[in-house]
């Protein structure tokens, strides 16, 4: 059972209380961008086997979107942080790097 702590209300919520939102930190491309950029933004996904940053919504709680760092190969949760983050917080990245020395890092 996947349990994530909502960074807003502090509730440790299990997955039936949450809605998944897939990959986080997508850079948006709209009118004026190239076809390749728009295609990558719309469809291409990292889908890593390992460390993954993703969006979740505390749907049956406070209702807010937040972000989580999770391992897709072991289901280990590294941490959660507010949605108003353009990239993962440095302390979380350091924590993941300590646990997963082979990880290529956030990019």
């Amino acid at each position: 059972m996947l349990i994530l702590e909502c960074p807003y209300c502090g509730v440790k919520a299990e997955e039936t209380e949450l809605s998944p939102g897939y990959e986080a930190h997508l850079k948006r491309f709209g009118p004026g961008s190239s076809d390749d950029e728009f295609n990558d933004y719309m469809f291409a996904r990292k889908n890593p086997k390992g460390v993954h940053f993703e969006r979740w919504r505390h749907a049956y709680g406070c209702g807010k979107w937040f972000l989580a760092a999770r391992c897709t190969a072991t289901l280990e949760v590294f941490g959660t942080y507010p949605a108003q983050s353009s990239e993962p917080p440095a302390d979380l990245v350091a924590k993941i790097k300590a646990k997963r020395p082979d990880w290529s890092g956030y990019k």
Partner: peptide
């Protein structure tokens, strides 16, 4: 299916 990326 589950709604999140998973290789387990």
């Amino acid at each position: 299916t589950d709604g999140f990326n998973n290789f387990t």
